[in-house]
Amino acid sequence: MLNQILNVAVVAAETAEHHTELPMPAIAYGAIIMGALLLLMFVTISFTSLGHRHEAVREHADPHRQHPNKHDHGEASQQH
Rank of each mutant, 00 (worst) to 15 (best):
G51Q: 06
H71Y: 12
A28P: 01
R65K: 13
K70A: 12
M41D: 01
A31S: 10
A16Y: 04
P68K: 13
A13D: 14
G30V: 04
R65V: 14
V8P: 00
N3G: 05
T44D: 07
R53Q: 06
Y29C: 00
S46M: 02
P25C: 02
L38G: 05
L37K: 06
I32S: 08
A26N: 09
H71E: 11
A61P: 10
M1E: 14
D62E: 11
Q66M: 12
L22R: 08
M41Y: 07
R53P: 00
Q4F: 15
L50W: 03
S77D: 13
H52C: 03
S46I: 00
N7V: 14
H67I: 15
A36K: 01
N3P: 03
S77N: 06
V57T: 12
A61E: 13
Q4A: 13
L37H: 04
Q66H: 10
L22E: 04
I27M: 08
M1T: 10
S49H: 07
G74S: 09
R53C: 02
T44K: 04
P23I: 04
V11G: 03
V43P: 01
G74N: 07
G30Q: 13
Q78D: 14
V57K: 11
E59N: 08
L22D: 04
G51E: 00
H60M: 07
H71D: 10
Y29A: 00
